[in-house]
């Protein structure tokens, strides 16, 4: 993947630093949320697939890790503040699955799945897929970081869930591959990270939260709470996305991707809520607040992204950023 186009002072300096290692990043602050989240996303990406022309060893460059920690501190504290009211939806004395159910029932009054099912144009549907591609082309990878950090029944349940996400022994059923095939059927660019320049900060934030939780052992509770909330809010929306794809005649692979997730996530939500989070909190009760925080973060960031996309479309705008030299669809 190529380095993304800079969105401000920090991402510009960071790009230069990744290419040749020279500029000093210690005094550069992000200009805004776009600059912050793109910079953080670039730093996280060093742990996944890396960038063309960037030495793989930079993954553990202490100067880059220092910048990352500074951005993470800001992101995490903002996220915790935003999530507090959502966490309070959970009954403090409830079981973990009941608490997760209360958090994932959070209703902000806007529904991206309903819009995509009934009203979205074909172009809007493609924009939706392009935004989602940032995650779905590495589907389940951020949660996989947690495997060596869990023990006993929670580890077994996570491995069971991941095995299904990763194709159940069949490469042709890898969920990231199913998504790539859906994109190709719509003549979107299915190469990894192809749309990073087009997605706004709110979609980068959705991805950065998963990496933040996955890459820090101390946040393993949040990683698993996030996973549970993701799975618990997937099955019913995927049915709507499937119906939207059928309404627009987008091709069988698009329907197939969402069809697969209606059934898969109806299983995964129980594996995640009970098998993983329930068992994790039983083994490590001090992680309960972070499990709920992670779930709330998933719900909150998804709601922000949905609102922003629907607002853009309601105004007759594209939900994607305009950039030079690259076109969607």
């Amino acid at each position: 993947m190529e380095l993304p186009q800079a969105r401000g002072a920090l991402s510009a300096t960071l790009s230069d630093a990744l290419r040749d290692g020279t500029p000093d990043l210690s005094s550069v602050e992000p200009d805004d949320e776009e600059d912050l989240h793109l910079s953080l996303w670039m730093l996280y990406e060093l742990h996944y697939r890396g960038f063309d022309g960037v030495d793989d060893a930079r993954e553990w460059d202490p100067d880059l890790l220092t910048v990352r920690a500074r951005l993470e501190g800001r992101f995490e504290s903002d996220l915790r503040a935003a999530c507090r009211p959502i966490v309070e939806l959970a009954d403090a004395r409830g079981s973990v699955p009941d608490q997760l159910a209360a958090i994932t029932a959070y209703d902000v009054g806007v529904s991206l799945p309903n819009f995509v099912q009934r009203e979205a144009s074909a172009d809007q549907y493609l924009e939706f897929l392009a935004q989602r591609s940032l995650y779905h082309l590495k589907e389940s990878d951020p949660a996989a970081w947690a495997v060596p950090r869990l023990e006993g029944p929670a580890k077994v349940a996570l491995a069971e869930l991941q095995y299904d996400e990763y194709g159940g022994g069949r490469p042709e059923r890898l969920h990231s591959r199913l998504f790539a095939e859906a994109m190709e059927a719509c003549r979107l660019d299915a190469s990894y990270g192809a749309y990073v320049d087009r997605v706004p900060a709110y979609t980068l934030a959705v991805n950065n939260a998963m990496s933040l939780f996955g890459l820090h052992r101390r946040l393993r509770g949040a990683a698993m709470g996030h996973l549970a909330a993701f799975e618990m809010t997937s099955s019913l929306p995927c049915r709507r996305y499937l119906q939207g794809a059928e309404r627009l005649g987008l091709g069988e692979p698009v329907g197939h991707y969402f069809d697969e997730h209606v059934e898969a996530d109806a299983v995964h939500e129980h594996l995640a809520a009970r098998g993983i989070c329930g068992a994790l909190v039983e083994a490590e009760p001090q992680l309960r607040p972070d499990v709920l925080f992670g779930a709330a973060a998933c719900v909150h960031l998804d709601a922000v992204a949905a609102q922003q996309m629907l607002d853009a479309w309601a105004d007759g705008r594209s939900a994607l950023r305009v950039v030079r030299d690259r076109e969607v669809a």
């Binding site: 069971e160 095995y163 299904d164 159940g168 059934e263 299983v267």
Partner: peptide, 8 residues
């Protein structure tokens, strides 16, 4: 046919 390791 059950096509995944756990079915609901």
């Amino acid at each position: 046919e059950a096509t995944r390791p756990v079915v609901a």
